[in-house]
Design a protein around this nucleic acid. Structure first.
Length: 432
RNA sequence: GGUGGCGUGUCCGAGCGGCCGAAGGAGCACGCCUCGAAAGCGUGUGAUGUGCAAGCAUCCGUGGGUUCAAAUCCCACCGCCACCGCCA
């Protein structure tokens, strides 16, 4: 969420910046709500001050044992004043919440560093790392996974419907090994603190990071009795909201948090896309990175976080490229986003595996996360989040990139200690 | 789910319906003292809104209510603690 005064003050610059991401912004009605609300607050304050003064006089009149008629007259005045106070308060409340609701629907401003364009095709490539393997007629991860007996889509559908997967034997072990490798990497080498967090969260928590109120259709929700909880689409939500409503000491920043959690997404609106395999599921698991820092350092922090996500791919020996997303393609809360795309031999192209975003102060304002600086001033912090990395897509990339002509799949060296085997033979047996 | 107790500032902890944003401690910051430190002494030390500012207003778990006036009275809810029941 933006600071209303600031956004309105930006005027045409804000309109232009939001237009870059395809959002039509009209500051006029907001400005009207803001000035109306402030005027109502002001008059309410004045009336209340007068009311307090009167109450004091009533007290004096009554205590002094003075004129009881005077006290009664003052009470009448005070009663009349109270109606006016209430009126002003209601007006301020009404205009204030209208303003707030309008503000909740306005996306973050793309940073100037973000390239123009509205689609993923407008992303700008930053660099390519590693060389895709040369494979003759590569099989895709679905074919490989089913042949090896480590992925079972038919039974997953039986259990839960489309867009779910079952991993079996070495497949399940592989998921577990990948997650552990990533967590070890981030906690031991990159300095992140690991968390285990709730994956069901309140509406308020979802609003803090910007998933709500606008994108309710993308979420799975649960209810039990009169309780309503949402399944997290990413650990970004609980990790970032860990500090909602808090004032942090500048010296404690940056905070670097990681968690491995299941993620749930309705995937509404992606009907035709990636219907096959484990690239796009309603439930997947992911190791997430979150950094909380001052607004001034968020640029550098984003570069750092991207390097941490990249390290996962380097560690696994997977070829990838880094792209900077176009203004129209970054997520609602982001002001700058890098995507990591891993090479997928079956598709003969790079596919998104990580999204690393600098949300600036946008989420912090919603969630009320602030920092106190040396001068005792308070400002919203900056929040960043990135996948580091999703387990399923990583597994798909490993299967496809490490497949051998004989139908077996080698395991990346970094995973062997976690797995206890170095390859899966074509018939599904493990090679130690 | 049942019964009882409790929810006040960074923490502990007082608080009679008006003089309470709130006593008193602790902590922290600064100053004095000291060769330096500890102790001691002094001063300061919450947040939010609004306003150029001075200021004004709001906040004592949350939301309602009573009253001219609520941290203080009433109601509901939430959370925490203890015991009981149930349970992975």
């Amino acid at each position: 969420m933006h600071d209303a005064r600031e956004l309105i003050g930006l005027g045409d610059a804000a309109v232009a910046a939001l237009a870059r991401r395809g959002f039509r912004f009209d500051p006029a009605p907001l400005a009207e709500l803001l000035t109306g609300r402030n005027a109502a607050i002001h008059s309410g304050d004045e009336l209340r001050a007068e009311s307090k003064r009167l109450a004091g006089e009533v007290g004096k009149a009554a205590k002094a044992g003075g004129d009881p008629q005077l006290a009664e007259a003052l009470k009448d005045q005070a009663r009349a004043l109270k109606d006016q106070v209430r009126e002003a308060e209601e007006k301020a409340e009404r205009l204030g919440s209208a303003l707030h609701e309008a503000m909740l629907d306005i996306p973050n401003l793309p940073s100037e560093a973000v390239p123009d364009g509205l689609t993923e095709d407008d992303a700008v490539e930053v660099r390519r790392v590693g060389a895709p393997p040369s494979l003759d007629g590569p099989r895709d991860h679905v074919e490989l996974g089913e042949a090896l007996g480590i992925l079972d889509f038919a039974r997953a559908t039986k259990l839960s419907g489309p867009r779910f997967a079952v991993a079996r034997g070495a497949g399940a072990a592989l998921e577990r090994a990948i997650a552990t490798l990533f967590l070890d990497l981030h906690t031991r080498r990159h300095g992140y603190t690991e968390f285990s967090v709730p994956t069901l969260v309140t509406r308020e928590t979802m609003t803090g990071t910007g998933q709500l109120p606008k994108f309710e259709a993308d979420l799975f929700a649960t209810s039990a009795g009169d309780r309503e909880l949402f399944l997290i689409p990413t650990a970004e939500v609980p990790l970032t909201n860990l500090h909602s409503g808090e004032i942090l000491d500048e010296g404690a920043l940056p905070l670097a948090y990681t968690a491995h959690t299941p993620c749930y997404r309705s995937e509404a609106g992606s009907y035709g896309r990636d219907t096959k395999g484990i690239l796009r599921l309603h439930q997947f698991s992911k190791v997430e990175l979150v950094r909380i820092c001052t607004a001034e350092t968020s640029n550098a922090e984003l570069e750092l976080m991207v390097s941490h996500a990249e390290a996962c791919l380097v560690e696994l020996g997977l070829a990838y490229r880094l792209v900077k997303l176009a203004a129209g393609d970054i997520s609602f809360s982001a002001q700058l986003t890098y995507d990591l795309e891993v090479w997928l031999p079956s598709q003969d192209k790079y596919r998104e595996i990580s999204s690393c975003s600098d949300c600036g102060q946008f989420q912090a304002r919603r969630a009320g996360i602030r920092v106190r600086n040396a001068d005792n001033q308070r400002h919203p912090v900056a929040t960043l989040n990135g996948s580091g990395l999703p387990i399923g897509r990583t597994m798909a990339a490993i299967l496809e990139n490490y497949q051998q002509p004989d139908g077996s799949v080698e395991m990346p060296k970094a995973l062997v200690p976690y797995l206890g085997f170095s390859a899966i033979a074509a018939d599904g047996t493990l090679v130690s």
